[in-house]
Write a protein that binds this DNA or RNA. Structure first.
Lengths: 245, 245
DNA sequence: CGGACCATTGACCATAGTCAACCGCCGTGG
DNA sequence: CCACGGCGGTTGACTATGGTCAATGGTCCG
């Protein structure tokens, strides 16, 4: 695993112009963080919490989700190495959604106080983090469109396209495959589909030869076909350097 | 109509602590803006644009939407007086969604240059605008949950609850009603429902006596019943002062 | 070996989509 | 002034996608 400062520097300089002093301050910032290892399904933020720290994902995958009255979960987004899944707690006190690990994950927790101090002294670092939260919002918007206007197979294909593309961008994908440690039930709670429908839809896509998904591993067999099926256009991810695919 | 600086001061001080100098600078900021009047369905940002200004809504309603390949629209959010529907263009160059007016609307357009200068000189104003964009993101998250996990009537009730609650918060609702100049087809493109289903769902809710929706006017007949039907909890809107209902 | 959990399959059902027609209103133009 | 056309809303009949219910198999772990 890379060191924390490598991960965040890579992530933020991917889309923002940061000078040497900015980077030095960023490295100092992550040193103030404390590591934490999470097991599958373990929450580290619950709905209603008022956190005093924000997390950066070091390895594995974490997810944000709403807990509906009645107990149903709705997964909202997934986050991989370099992501800041709860940057919004800097300025929104009471969290309106929970965050848990999907599979095993490692995060570091950085005190809000340290981040806020850095925002005041180095505005360009603040703008870079702000931009991160804006890209998050773009991903949420795409999820609205995906879950509201695409039929089952396209909806699922789009999700897998996004996860693979982002894993590529983060440099944690193997050639033609990446880790997606989701269960079929969780995919259903992401796409708004019943678990049986998830199962059947995965099989129907598998039969087209576009991809495989099994045992937490996503394998791309035909990227062009998969993106066509999912109507996937990565513009909304706002990755400056397009991932090699 | 109120003056622009009244609207933005009201909006931002609703959830952020701004001192007298901050407010003075905000008022100066909106003076640099130019007004624009929009007709129904008129775009003022198109997908792929690289705008040099950001808008604040003065009156009426504007909407963000995705244009899918094939021409289908997916509405993502609606914005009323005081909202900043394209603040994200400050830090994300290429817009990934379009914005249009719903009904007649008035906006003012403020140059990015002026806003960015203010962010550097008055960080707390920047934080307030940042928080605005984070609340936007919370609304997007709720839309994911709404459109993905609620059945037709609940989904529609939730949308109307949000629109009324926000209109209340912005001070532009009448007692028990507010303007929602959407057509049934647009509601379908918001909730991911076919237009016939929208029509039937509106009628079924109307029959419960919870609300009326007709000719662009939303009338609340039984707020408690409507919120129960829509499973509506306004926490995610992060309005400090709860709107009177 | 038993139980828990996840994936898979089958049979049936319900919600919501498609297709099509009609109504009422309004603005335009003959 | 009235006829026409367009648009939004409404209704009906039919269809299909996807949900519910239920049972089975496989794997891992205690």
């Amino acid at each position: 695993m890379n060191a924390a400062h490598d991960i965040i520097v890579r992530k933020l300089s991917d889309h923002s112009a940061l000078d040497g002093d900015d980077l030095k301050n960023l490295e100092a910032l992550v040193l103030t963080g404390t590591g934490r290892t999470l097991g599958p399904n373990e929450d580290f933020i619950r709905q209603g919490d008022v956190p005093k720290v924000s997390a950066m994902v070091m390895s594995g995958m974490v997810a944000r989700y709403h807990l509906r009255s009645g107990g149903r979960r709705q997964y909202l987004s997934f986050h991989i190495a370099g992501d800041l899944p709860d940057a919004q707690t800097l300025f929104i006190e009471k969290t309106d959604h929970a965050i848990c690990a999907i599979g095993n994950a490692e995060i570091i927790l950085i005190p809000h106080r340290e981040i806020l101090d850095l925002l005041e002294s180095r505005p360009s670092v603040g703008f870079a983090i702000w931009r991160e939260t804006l890209i998050d919002a773009a991903i949420f918007r795409e999820a609205i469109t995906n879950n509201s206007s695409r039929a089952g197979p396209a909806r699922m294909a789009h999700l897998f396209c996004e996860l693979y593309y982002r894993a590529r961008g983060a440099g944690i994908a193997k050639p033609g495959s990446c880790s997606v440690p989701l269960h079929q039930g969780q995919i259903g709670e992401t796409l708004g589909m019943a678990i049986v429908t998830v199962n059947r839809t995965i099989q129907s896509i598998r039969q087209t030869g576009a991809m495989e998904f099994r045992d937490g591993e996503l394998t791309i067999r035909d990227w062009k076909q998969l993106t066509a099926l999912g109507d996937f256009d990565p513009t909304y991810l706002h990755l400056k350097r397009p991932a090699r695919l």
